[in-house]
Design a protein around this nucleic acid. Sequence first.
DNA 1: TTGTATGCGTTATCAC
DNA 2: GTGATAACGCATACAA
Lengths: 336, 336
Amino acid sequence: MSESTRRRGAAPTIREVAAAARVSRATVSRAFGRPELLRPATVAHVRAVAAELGYLPNAVARGLSTGRYATIALVVPDIANPFFPPLVRGAQQAADLAGYGVFLGDSDEDPAREDALLARFTGQVEGVVLVSSRLRAARVREHAERRPVVLVNRDLAGLPRVLVDPTRGMTEAVDHLAALGHRRIAYVNGPRTSWAHQQRRRTLRRATDARGLELVTVDARRPTYDAGIACVPDLLAGGATAAVAFDDVLAQGILAGLAEAGVDVPGDLSVVGCDDVVAATTAPPLTTVSAPAGQAGRAAVDLLLGLLGNDDLRDARYVVDTRLVVRSSTGPAGAG
Amino acid sequence: MSESTRRRGAAPTIREVAAAARVSRATVSRAFGRPELLRPATVAHVRAVAAELGYLPNAVARGLSTGRYATIALVVPDIANPFFPPLVRGAQQAADLAGYGVFLGDSDEDPAREDALLARFTGQVEGVVLVSSRLRAARVREHAERRPVVLVNRDLAGLPRVLVDPTRGMTEAVDHLAALGHRRIAYVNGPRTSWAHQQRRRTLRRATDARGLELVTVDARRPTYDAGIACVPDLLAGGATAAVAFDDVLAQGILAGLAEAGVDVPGDLSVVGCDDVVAATTAPPLTTVSAPAGQAGRAAVDLLLGLLGNDDLRDARYVVDTRLVVRSSTGPAGAG
DNA sequence: TTGTATGCGTTATCAC
DNA sequence: GTGATAACGCATACAA
């Protein structure tokens, strides 16, 4: 390779490979992108030279030229919330398998930051997976107009979406509690703008109504461990014998708060979580509604990639099911 | 705006804005990138037109032209391991603050996948934060030669790195256990190729030696909850009265395995974790060595961005300290 | 089968 | 201050 075409420090470009291999730049390009158009010997030669130079096609330049960036964005409200890492992992695996890179955005549960992240990613990614969006519907639709968007745990007609359906798991939970003799059940709220929260509450309402059980509501300010501890006085004041929490983290906080208050679980009060992300590790092990987050992440990316491949999936609705996992935080009513 | 220059469906380009605002492309570019070179009235005019058209500068084209992509890569072994989400969150925040986008890579603890991810990101990002790399040193250096790399929890001379130093926390743990009368302590291994593991074991060795305590080692195949449960028989066979686990997840599994085996904690055996990521939520609450993962993530990104800004930080070594958090999984030796 | 020329959307250089 | 124009690295019609 001649020093005239080889700049040191920088990564080699297609031009330098072309010079070294004594072919045109187009041939080098084809050797990587469309080898079937070239004579096998040419492909081999070019690739050998490229390898020796340490050449790798520049994804940015390729994207600019083709319009295919081979990247997607994944925006979540809070990566530190244990529901999301498995989902992110699933999404990342699916994207990786298809040769796509993943931009990660953490909105910190803040709609304005979510909006800003989405704007930043525009024009830099082929599409976005928007998880548990806190944006209002109209704004989500505006973003979806600019490029393909797949929603997770947000149900907007006309937009492809992956939904974790709490119906089965929640209904099983109510049956389980009813069978244990509970007549008055408390639901501890999640974020008001969360689709998951709304679904869970609604499902719970239906199931309790259908069985003639009472349902009371307790507020938690955020779905955090500390908020779970903090809501325990309200919970106890409600007079319920069983509590269903918006998610496992909240439930875990509730368990801690109850232990501190000297309330026995499940003797005095039964507790049910949701998501099954930490459930096996609590004390007592938490009865919870299990949700396959990894599967949801993979499904969302597959849906998005299908969308990019021109499949008509505009109104696709991929539903993943839930079920109750009974552990030791639930027991007979009034056993304490 | 004339329909001739306005293509529907696609995002507007600088060319269309220029036409609509009756200025040159260069002027539009300056209105966004270097407004101080323009008359304020021009800036305002161009920006108004751009806003009306919904124009946003294309980050990819800009990157190609300037060589500054405004993106970094963040590669972790397993996003589902609770040590990493806070780190990722911190890194993401710091990057976001500087206007950088973050590519996330999950290597699934597999060196080959880590290598492939790194290769993919090359030429697409300005630099990479490589967390708990499982790659051999030479390979890491090769990657670092191609573009700036900041290591987290890997100590390679000549490369900028952020290290969570277990010395203080681990030493405090040994002091704590010694004060409780423990003479024989078990360490439950982490991944052999993990720098964190090596450091923790070494520190533990030094501290126990210095105090004339015995140290035995127990193998766990992976730092997982299940592996923690599985290693309990070995742990019990070792005859130690206290166990220090590589990390909290492992410790949590050990707690579960011990409970199942009818071993009282801390009555029969004391358990210490590491990282303090789930520690407050275990039963009993886990005594652990706390590590500020979020701070490490932020520091790594700041270091990387400094590197890109030409600061001479090639051999920087940013150390974050640990300390022991005493909860309820440790108690007097032989109290059971 | 391979080479030539052009464009992707932007910024930078150099005029004016 | 602002405009024309050449890169940036690659892919792809079109030619040969």
